[in-house]
Design a protein around this nucleic acid. Sequence first.
RNA 1: GCGCCAUUAACUCAGCUGGAUAGAGUAACUGCCUUCUAAGCAGUAAGCCGCUGGUUCGAAUCCAGCAUGGCGCGCCA
Length: 587
Amino acid sequence: MINPVKSATEELKKLIGAALEKIAAESGADASALPKFTVEIPADKSHGDFATNAALASAKALRSNPRKIAEGITANISLEGTSFEKVEIAGPGFINFFLSKSWFGNVVTDILNESTRYGRTDTGAGKKILLEFVSANPTGPMHVGNARGGALGDCLASVLDYAGYNVCREFYINDAGNQVNKFGKSLDLRYMQLNDPANAEFVKSFGTDTEALCHAVYDDTERFPMPDDVYLGVDIITHAKNFTDINGDKYYSVSEEERRAALVDYALPINIKNLELDLGKYRIIYDNWFHESTLHNDGSVQRIIEKLKASGYTYEQEGALWFRSTELGDDKDRVLVRANGVPTYFVPDIAYHYNKLAERNFDTAIDILGADHHGYIPRMKAAMKALGVDENRLDMVIMQMVMLIDKDGNPIKLSKRSGKAITLVTLLEDIPIDAARFFFNLREANSQFEFDLDLAIEQSSQNPVYYVQYAHARICSIIRNMRGKGIFADESKADLTLLTAPEEIELIRALAVLPNTVDMAARDYDPSKITRYAIDLATLFHKFYDKCHIMGEAEELMQARLMLCTAVKTVLKNVLDMLKVNCPDKM
RNA sequence: GCGCCAUUAACUCAGCUGGAUAGAGUAACUGCCUUCUAAGCAGUAAGCCGCUGGUUCGAAUCCAGCAUGGCGCGCCA
């Protein structure tokens, strides 16, 4: 794995560390008492390619002033044979290092050699991560929040993969419990309405136009009243109608229990299939779809209750079984089994996480959660602790809500009752997939963002994603034009030391930083660092393009710039691949 | 009331986990297409980094308190 910045940083740390030890020894100070120092890339380019605060940080331990220490350090460092060609002391005692020309040239050749592998690191060391995201309820269509969660989760999985982790993308299907009961009840009510003899004429008047009928039923709350505790969406009516088309009214007179079961057995698999299809259109392919029902069927839920009881962290009160989570860092105790004997949702969830970490042995499990579920973190960690699983192996990424606003800045209500809820599907009909995936990863998960839906649709052509794609298309165009004139890449004729224009140096620096950026994005579970990297790189390329010509330059320079362009093209491609965003050759 | 998260340019956001003169993109204004894609580039203007203290060589960054906003605090999921 090639990481030019990391190699240079480590090289520098060794040089500085050795010099410091020498100074400490000479002055009789204790070398082990020296504090840690940092090596970083300064914001201001005039401060060199790398800077260290070693002299400032060690001032106390060495009982000397920083500038003097800095002089000592530089006097004890020989740059010969290193990646650096110049060192200087600046400000209160910073030491600035300047990379040699050959280092920049090597970055370009390294990238061309590494090709599609460039950007990958081995930081994760193959550790197994289970990343669960979206996990929308299969009782209805996905909404805008799922669009963000999907883009975030899928790109995070890619980032972790690039950082050397072994990632499994998983969708947890809540196909059991109260949600499903409510789903059955909703379907049942609609089925009964549609098959009520009193409504026969009305239903018949729509003929085969199911969609019109469903909307008419939806709007006619007088004729088709619905209680509060059921799903009201049109999709429920559509299921009931389609079920009726297949089975007629033969379930009209059977027991409610039998009818509900039949309706759920019919509609739930369809919904699950649709989730898979819709997410697939969004370029999200899961490695595994985990059914909650399996945890009930194979006894896991019951076993978890026994395990928790055995842990000693449970007690009974008012007929219910409680989890003493307060003692494990939660702010209150939680009910595990209700007085009526039915476990709360919490128990299968514990069983699920236990399954991930203790039974399937993932090193780490990551959940992407909506901010409204943040209170769930301490209780799940508490449960893992009680079960003897290291709670640090469970990580939660909190994703703030997406607030849709209209042109006037008024929030668009996502009420299901209004029937105007914006689904993931309709959103993706309006916004190109590339733009949506990129857009939703422009900001950190934990920043809530409002977005103007009208603007997102209207301005899709000025979305940053096009800016990045344009850079790639431009490079492809250059290469095409050169080929058209019979000019081909020939590395043996290139002289990379000619790449000295500020635009070229900046561009190479940005190329070099990709593996570090991947590591940081993985460390912070933050794919937005990658989208911003892509934008930064595109910016630097556009600047380079404006300033530096390729065709028409002397052979050695032309070939060197062509290599640089190819390296940029490679990196843009790798980065957009990571985000699963298209990378067009022409725009 | 308690907890979590936020607060940086007119707007949307970065700021590499404590470093040097706080940065981008939008929007506004001004330039640049007879040579590789103007979906581009260059420039101008715009800041009490929410407020007040503390920690130290050094704070947008760490700590405490306060203010404002969002979200949670069910034998719902």
